[in-house]
Amino acid sequence: MADIIEVRNFTFFYGSFRAIRELNLSIRANQITALIGPSGCGKSTFLRSLNRMNDTIRGTHVQGEVLLDGQNIYAPEVDVTELRQRVGMVFQRPNPFPQSIYDNVAFGPRVLGMDRTQNLETIVRESLEKAVLWDEVKDHLRTSALDLSPGQQQRLCIARTIAVRPEVILMDEPCSALDPVATLRIEDLMRELARDYTIVIVTHNMQQAARASDWTGFFWLGELVEFRETADLFSNPREALTEAYISGRRG
C-alpha cells in the first residue's frame, strides 16, 4: 500500500519552544492512522502541521519536510489554500458556520469555484450522504446548522470537508464533545470514509484508537515513541513507555 504522506526529520517551534522534535513517519493511503499520547505531547500541533493550519499562529516555524504525494508542503511555491483543499480538517469542537446546513456544505465548493463547473446541489447532497447525515436533514437544508445536535454538527463538518474532495482528512479529537452514541456513529463513518480518503485522527481515547484505526502512533513530549499497526501496538508494544501508557490508561 502506498504512502500518501511522508514526514521527514520534522521539527516544529512555537517561537523558541520546540513542540515536535525530529519526527519521521509515513501515512498510508486509505487507512486510518490514530495518534495517541498524553495531553500537551504535540499531537494537535503535529496534525495541524499536515495542512499548515499552524501558519495562522504567529511566530511558528518548522524544520524538515512533510511530503504529500512526494511534494514538500512547506516548499515556498506551495499554495496553502490548495493544500488545505487536499488535506481537510475536522476540529475538536464541532464548528459549523452560523448559516444554513446547505450553505455550510456549499461553502467549500463556492470558495473554490467548483460550482462553476458542477451542480452545487449535487455536491451538497453527495457530501451529506457520505457523511450519513442526508436522511436526517434533507427536509430542512435551509435551517440553521446551529439547531443540529452536536453529533449531527460534527457530521456536518465532515460533510463540509469532503465537499471539496480532499485526499486526506485530519480529525483532532472529533468525538471529545460528543456522547457515546454519537461517538460510535462517527467511528462507523470513519470506516466508510476510509475507502475514499486517508484519515489521520488524534484521540485521547485509547479504546477508540484500538477500535477504529489501522495504524497507531504514540507521542510523548513531542517525540514519536512508537508507530505500528494498531493491533500490534496494543497487544505487543515494543517500548516500555508505550506499554506503561496504554496499560496505565486501560486499568
Binding site: Q85, F91, N95, G108, V111, A163
Partner: peptide
C-alpha cells in the same frame, strides 16, 4: 469565534473569503 475562521481556512478559503 476563531473556530469559524479556522473552519473556513481549513477548507481552502483565503483569508479574505
Amino acid at each position: 469565534p476563531k473556530e469559524y475562521r479556522d473552519g473556513a481556512l481549513a477548507i481552502g478559503a483565503t483569508q479574505w473569503q
